[in-house]
């Protein structure tokens, strides 16, 4: 009986994690760094990003961004292109933000990471 309860509890707890595609460790580190960088830069001032506060609406929502076809409607949505765009979003309403190339790559990895849940914090 006790074993069964423990098993059920373990299964329930496992459900709290994002058990989607197995991510590689380097990738998850970049995602974690990207979340911190996005918070530090205040991306939430204009964008809805699940797990990031606040949830500004003056820019487009970035929820499930990895499912988008394009970046700002102009180029294919790949993490490397996204990192370039973040460093220099010329021609859009978004200003250049004080971030390094590594920050940009990390934030791109974060925005392309497995389903972001609002409880990810």
């Amino acid at each position: 009986m006790g074993v069964r309860i423990a098993l059920i509890a373990a299964l329930l707890l496992a459900g709290c994690e994002n058990v989607g595609l197995a991510p590689n460790p380097a990738g998850t580190e970049a995602v974690a760094r990207g979340r911190v960088a996005a918070e530090r830069l205040g991306c939430g001032a204009c964008h809805v990003i699940p797990g990031i506060w606040p949830a500004g609406t003056s820019g487009p929502s970035l929820a499930n961004f990895r499912n988008r076809a394009s970046i700002a409607g102009r180029q294919a949505n790949r993490p490397d292109r996204l990192a370039e765009f973040l460093l220099d979003p010329a021609g859009t309403a978004m200003p250049r933000q004080p971030m390094s190339a590594r920050d940009a790559a990390d934030i791109a990895a974060f925005l392309h990471s497995a389903p972001q849940s609002a409880h990810a914090r």
């Binding site: 530090r40 830069l41 205040g42 991306c43 939430g44 001032a45 204009c46 606040p54 949830a55 500004g56 609406t57 003056s58 820019g59 309403a93 978004m94 200003p95 250049r96 933000q97 004080p98």
Partner: peptide, 25 residues
């Protein structure tokens, strides 16, 4: 900070605050 300690202060957050401070606070 911007908005009394709630946001970092940079070009982007300034724009976001000016455009829509009511959503943020």
């Amino acid at each position: 900070t911007l908005g009394a300690g709630i946001l970092p202060n940079n070009r982007g957050t300034l724009m976001g605050w000016i455009a829509d401070s009511q959503t943020l606070k």
